[in-house]
Amino acid sequence: MKLNEGEIGRNYVVTGVLAKQQVARRLEALGVNERTPVIVLNKKGSGSLIIKVRGTRLALGRQIAEGITIEEVARR
């Protein structure tokens, strides 16, 4: 599923990043890559969300969140 469909407080891992090349590269540099664990911390109805990734918090707009696919994993 897409990152913006994730639920608050759940653990996921990234399975793919699909975005404009520029955005994809920035995401990769920020450590959002395949197999990266993420937790959804906060989410708005419109699809913007805050995730915790590699020990830091990132705020993402809907367009970017839609391009990130994730799958749920058991709480580590």
């Binding site: 520029q22 955005v23 920035r26 995401l27 920020l30 913007s48 805050i50 830091t56 918090r57 990132l58 705020a59 993402l60 707009g61 809907r62 367009q63 970017i64």
Partner: peptide, 9 residues
């Protein structure tokens, strides 16, 4: 469409 939001908090 604008460049989406991407910022560290």
């Amino acid at each position: 469409e604008e460049d989406g939001l991407l910022i560290e908090l």
